[in-house]
Simulated assay, not measured.
Amino acid sequence: MKILLNNLFSIGLLLFIAACSNKKETDNTQAEIAPAIVTNEVVLSAEQSKTADIQFGAIQNRILSATVKVNGMLDVPPQNKVSVVAVMGGILKQTSLLQGLKVKKGQVIAVMQHPDYIQLQQDYLDHKSQLTFLTAEYERQEALAKEQVNAQKTLQQASSAFQSMKARVQGLRQRLQLLNINMSTLEKGNIQNTINLYAPITGYVTKVNVNIGSYVDPTNVMFEIVDTEHLHAELTVFENDIPNIKIGQKVRFTLANENEERMATVYLIGREISDNRTVNIHCHLDKEDKQLLPGMYLKALVETGSLEKPALPEKAIVDYQGNKYIFISEKAQHFDMIAIKTGVTESGFTEVTLPESFNKKNYKVVFNGAYDLLAKLKNTAEEE
């Protein structure tokens, strides 16, 4: 009997220890998952309310623009962006271009040299001289043919030689004009050992890919010049938002690291969906700004219409742990924090979606001092 009682006592002791241990673990688990704020109610004294400058207002319907959020970048039309190449390979003898330098259309931007330039001019003068002789011979044979003095075959040979040389001379002339050779000077016998490259548009140099003394192939892009006077905003819109986009809609956009809001207008809507299911939208800036540069990234809101929505001032809405809240009051110095959803923000007011049970007639909304109430709520939770 004594042994049996000892065993029962031991078993009871073990069960007691296990129960205490389970209770402690349960208490620790509850402490870990307990929210930072266990109540949504704040009570202030009259003095505290005055210090926080609590002010009330009512939720009102306001006309807000329905918008689509998009990203994009500034760009220029293809005709305002030029890649400068050498029509014929050569060595760069001279250039003063640097990135950011402004150039005017027709300005000399580089000087090239190569023996082939000289040879091409020599060939032109030689073939032009032969053309003069063949022209005279053809005219002579034509005159003789009219008098039936020579054979028809002789006239055909003279005509063939004349036409062939004429085509060669015209071809060489076109090639020399592409090289910007002064033809009137050349026809006087003056051969140039260098050629000039001229700026095709007025704009700013954005790329310089060559240096003096380097050989340049016709396929090499030597310089890139951009006319920034006609920048546009190129927006990327997801396909599910495209039905809401229309030509003529206004676009509000801001550049990276800027708070200034700029305006643009939808001008063209792309007709092809990319692999990532987006469409490019072309927008014209309402106001040109010479300080802007192609390639700048931007965030934009496309205004797709106007709707009347319940709204509150931005300062009435607080953000806590990723959710949006407002404070309401039914009686003096007593405030309740309720969760809401937000929508469009415009001119300092934000669209709000309230709980179905919320009755605007019974409650006043805190317009000023909302963050003071949130701070008080946090402090109360920490004390508890």
Rank of each mutant, 00 (worst) to 15 (best):
K2D: 07
I3W: 10
L4V: 10
F9V: 15
N28E: 15
N28P: 03
T29M: 12
I33M: 00
P35Y: 10
E47N: 11
S49I: 10
A52K: 02
A52G: 08
I54W: 04
A58I: 07
A58P: 01
I59E: 05
N61T: 14
A66S: 12
G72F: 03
M73T: 10
D75G: 11
V76I: 04
P78Q: 12
N80E: 13
K81N: 15
M88Q: 08
G89N: 11
L92I: 12
L92D: 01
K93D: 15
S96M: 09
S96Q: 13
L97P: 09
L101K: 15
K102H: 13
V103I: 12
K105H: 15
I109M: 08
V111Q: 03
M112E: 10
P115R: 12
D116M: 02
D123A: 15
D123T: 04
Y124E: 00
K128N: 15
S129E: 14
S129G: 12
S129C: 07
E142N: 15
A145G: 14
K146E: 10
Q148L: 12
Q148W: 10
V149F: 11
N150M: 06
N150Y: 05
T154K: 12
T154Y: 06
A158T: 07
F162R: 01
F162Y: 14
K166C: 07
I181P: 01
N182P: 04
I191D: 09
N193F: 05
I195E: 00
Y198F: 09
A199N: 03
A199W: 06
Y204P: 04
Y204M: 11
Y204L: 08
V205Y: 05
T206F: 02
V210F: 00
N211V: 11
I212D: 02
G213Q: 00
Y215N: 03
V216G: 00
M222N: 04
D227Q: 00
D227S: 03
L231G: 09
L231R: 08
L235G: 07
V237F: 01
I245L: 01
K246R: 11
K246P: 04
K246W: 05
K250M: 08
F253R: 08
F253C: 00
A256E: 11
N257E: 15
E258K: 06
R262Q: 04
I269N: 07
D275E: 13
N276I: 08
N280V: 13
I281S: 06
H282M: 13
L285M: 00
D286R: 04
D289P: 01
P294L: 13
M296Y: 06
A300W: 01
E303F: 10
G305H: 05
P310F: 01
L312E: 00
L312G: 02
P313D: 06
V318E: 12
D319A: 08
Y320L: 08
N323C: 02
I328H: 04
E330L: 06
M337G: 05
G343P: 02
V344M: 09
T345P: 01
F349K: 05
F349Q: 05
P355F: 06
S357V: 05
N362D: 13
K364F: 05
K364Y: 05
Y371A: 07
K376D: 10
K378G: 08
E384M: 06
